[in-house]
Simulated assay, not measured.
Amino acid sequence: MHVRTLVRSATATLAMTLALAGGQAVAAPSPAGDRALAPRVLTYDASASAEFKSAVDRGAAIWNESVDGVELRPVATGRRADIRILADNGWPRALPTTLGNGIVYIGRQAVVQGYDTVRISAHELGHILGLPDRKPGPCSSLMSGSSAGTACKNPYPNAAERAEVERDFGGVSVRTAEGPRDVVTAD
């Protein structure tokens, strides 16, 4: 979201500068420009994520800090979420249905083995955002998942992972789904 914030700040600063200089600041209509800056908003429901709710919220916040094309928000009460997040006793996994939609399981088995809950959450959300596993891989790659080992606590996507999500979502307000996926990603 850093680019959107920067553009909005620069626009506001320019308008204020013109006003102070005695000029007239008039906002030119730019509906296409506004849409280009608007992220696709995806909602998530972490109400069934049990003890992992704060890790899920942090994982979503990390994606929001890292990319501009998509924004993850908690679903409003009574609404249907794009992403459902559940806790279970198995291994963490994501079941994407379409780009930006699906179910994430925060499995306790990996947590018991010592894997970081925020990294797990961000990694599994990465699958919903269209990223595949990249195993084996270094800790600097979020999508390396469990192959980075239990000592790896990095929950941030690297530059290539961020760029791939940006390409997939394109920073536009509306995008059609890529179609169903029938591949289960288990980490």
Rank of each mutant, 00 (worst) to 15 (best):
A60S: 05
G69L: 03
S121N: 07
A76S: 12
S30Y: 03
A151Y: 12
L6K: 14
L95S: 06
V67T: 09
S173T: 07
V3I: 11
L125I: 07
V56E: 01
V172D: 00
P29G: 10
E178Q: 07
A50E: 15
E124A: 05
G179P: 08
A28I: 13
G90S: 15
Q113A: 14
P132V: 02
Y115G: 10
A27G: 14
S121Y: 03
R40N: 07
G126H: 01
E161F: 03
P39N: 04
G102C: 00
R80N: 12
G102H: 08
L20T: 14
G78E: 11
G130S: 00
Q24D: 13
A15C: 12
R8Y: 11
N89D: 15
G171C: 06
A94Y: 00
R73G: 00
V112P: 02
Q24L: 14
P39G: 02
E65A: 13
L129V: 01
A159P: 09
A60L: 08
P138S: 06
A15Q: 15
V70Q: 03
V70N: 07
F52W: 02
S47N: 14
V118G: 07
S173L: 04
D34G: 06
R134L: 12
G90Q: 12
G59N: 06
N101P: 00
A32F: 05
L99N: 04
V184D: 00
S30K: 08
I83R: 07
H127N: 04
G130N: 06
L6G: 09
D68P: 05
